[in-house]
Amino acid sequence: MNEKNINCPNITMRLETASVLVNKAIDAVTMNKIQKRNLIWLELTGCSGNIISLLDGADPDFKSLATQMVKIVYDNSLMAAEGEFAMEKLFNMLGKDYILAVEGAVSTKDGGLYNVIGRFKGESITAYRAIKELGEGAAYVIAVGTCASDGGISAARPNPSKCVGVQDLLNRKVIKLPGCPCHPDWFMGTLAYILLFGEPALDERARPLMFYSTLIHDCCPRHPFFEQGVFAEKLGDETCMFKLGCRGPVTRVDCPIRKWNDRVNWPIGDNSPCIGCAMFGFPDKMKPFISYNTT
């Protein structure tokens, strides 16, 4: 099925979207047609899975992004500076030009006290304060991953720290790249597009159409089984997992084409139902992730 699909121009072009954009952005920076812009990457209330995912990017890879496309000013997982020195770099960007990428939700209970990202001038800096101060002044804000986009796992019931997505705290547009984690292509392609052309075309939920325009179900290599009513009865069956609770029919993103881990595979390709991790409402509204006694 996949070997046949590779001849489809729609699929081939989609596979190249991110690398074409990143290469164009790098060329434009190299030829001084555009400026290398500052990038701040904030890790808030989450698992740091999105920065790990970004580091796993391939064609385009993270090295290209970090060395040739943007200037990464702050990322607590990657930068050499630490403590007060790191926070100084972060807050020195206020009033300057920067693009803000945020992973993780924002804890709001008790003034955000349940997520302190550092100390600066003797004060604890909460994720809540960081996003309020840095979010409004950024040239663009990109919510990377489901937690930043919609609260995600950090905001799952009972949500003890009252986590919310970034958009809930900012009176400005936030470009959303939901996914648990966000695919490296989705972030790098969106960032490259911003550098080259400004804001990309977005859907009604502020997701870039170039990555989030089709349902997983519509591009799924097992879709013919759904149409024929041939359903998997247990994990491992290589047919449509609709009856097991697959959320591909309600999840809008291009996993079946792009795949993961250097484009090796993706959940359904490995006989696991889609759990809707890139859909708003994940995880609470995507449950149950697996079900065995359906009709």
């Binding site: 609770g245 449950k287 009709t295």
Partner: peptide
């Protein structure tokens, strides 16, 4: 059992509706 839901007084069959996987839909 098939999966039915009611909307505005009418009962609909969603047993094989793609958006109702495992007879559930967004919770």
């Amino acid at each position: 059992n098939p999966a039915y839901v009611a909307v505005n007084g009418t009962v609909y069959d969603v047993t094989n509706n793609a958006a109702w996987a495992a007879a559930t839909h967004f919770g």
